[in-house]
Design a protein around this nucleic acid. Structure first.
Lengths: 229, 229
DNA sequence: CGGATGCTTCGATTAACGTCGAACTATGAA
DNA sequence: TTCATAGTTCGACGTTAATCGAAGCATCCG
């Protein structure tokens, strides 16, 4: 009778407060261990273990074992995108955990969304790439054009190592405000990494904010977020 | 401690099977009454009533009272977008309700996503509009360009009445496969309505499929989904 | 080899919530 | 007015699932 994918299963997985806290913690893009996630959610390590097993079973997480540690991260960009969408809905219905403070403003401006740049600056960069013809919508996927590839290489991105991976190079990701999209995919990740390497910005420890230096923001506007005439 | 919007609340709302069934039923875009939704979810009208109250309280639904009937529809396009995203995740983790059949194929090709066209054909139309310069990414929102407006008027869309509404004209909506976006917003709605008026396609009763006639599909490819050279 | 740390499994408790029968209100039809 | 239909509220039942203590593995370190 019911048609289509079983949406309730996934939603219920995200719907538990403890699990939701873990997932939002993973939105920074950093891989966290089970105990770290337990602390993040405010539960004991035993319960965290069962929760993490469920999330993994639902294909929401990617797990890597290293020695006696188990590192968890979000499975794909799609998961991050859905989480962002849910945040948008929750924010709109007014159920904010904390009232909007100064930290919130910086989150809107620039933050990390599963390892790539989100927020106003992320959107501006995406728009600029699009307008300059670096990205093209081809078939089913977002593609990097030849001029785009040249630009990326010039910016210090090693495209060869990126294309060697099996994960998609470019992808769209809907933003917090759920209005516009920014660049995800391995290229998005590489760009943020490059921005950090260049010293233009650094991640705020313990939150998702990305804090640009004054020089970094100017350089960003000049090279990445150019508005094409 | 916890920062950001309360995502668990919303996800838990969608996470109940009965409520999820109601929401997916509303993805057709049609407004349904409480009893219709109860039947759709396979529960009694009393339980449906409490569920609908909760969904409404979570700002996921829009409610209109007409006589002794209460009509429910999805609150905004954002809600539909999140539901689509969740379907993508659920589909990927392999938990399909029904094994993929012929109906599933037609859903992928063209279906209705909260009143606008989704699926392959929706994506192709969006790409074409983008490539022909009908849509521009401006500031925070997707904008209809002047040439785009001319085209729409020529296609028989009454733009004046659309812009008179307060709801946004253009919006992106992430697709099932969660890879690419198609056109939502009031313009997206109007386009699908126009397509139906022209007799190019009709909605399948009881599913989300949009079935094009042979002539309709040819006309669609010729006028709406032109690939710009 | 101990001893410590990270994670998992088991069992029992507890709390939350979906469910429906029954009774109630409101609107529309005869 | 009388009856029927749509929807809501209440109370009780039952199931589900989150939680933690305790015990059990696995891994690393000295």
């Amino acid at each position: 009778m019911k048609e289509g994918p079983d949406i309730a299963r996934v939603a219920a997985l995200i719907g538990d407060p403890a699990r939701a806290n873990m997932l939002t913690a993973l939105m920074t893009g950093k891989a966290l261990t089970a105990t770290e996630l337990a602390a993040e959610a405010g539960i004991t390590s035993q319960t965290a273990s069962t929760h993490l097993a469920k999330l993994d079973g639902g294909n929401l997480l990617r797990v890597r074992k290293q020695g006696r540690h188990k590192y968890f991260s979000l499975a794909t960009d799609d998961v991050a995108a859905v989480l962002e969408g849910l945040m948008g809905l929750a924010a709109k219905s007014g159920h904010l955990r904390t009232r909007t403070g100064p930290r919130d403003a910086s989150l809107r401006k620039a933050r990390v969304c599963y390892n790539h740049l989100a927020g106003d600056m992320g959107i501006r960069m995406f728009d600029s790439f699009h307008g300059r013809g670096f990205l093209a919508l081809e078939d089913e996927n977002l593609q990097l054009t030849r001029t785009g590839a040249e630009f990326m290489t010039g910016f210090g991105i090693d495209l060869d190592s990126l294309t060697a991976q099996k994960s998609p190079l470019c992808r769209e990701c809907l933003d917090w405000s759920a209005r516009r999209s920014h660049l995800a995919g391995s290229l998005g990740r590489a760009l943020l990494a490059r921005i950090e390497t260049l010293g233009w910005a650094r991640r705020d420890a313990g939150s998702r904010a990305v804090i640009f230096t004054q020089r970094g923001e100017a350089a960003f506007a000049e090279r990445l977020a150019v508005t094409p005439v």
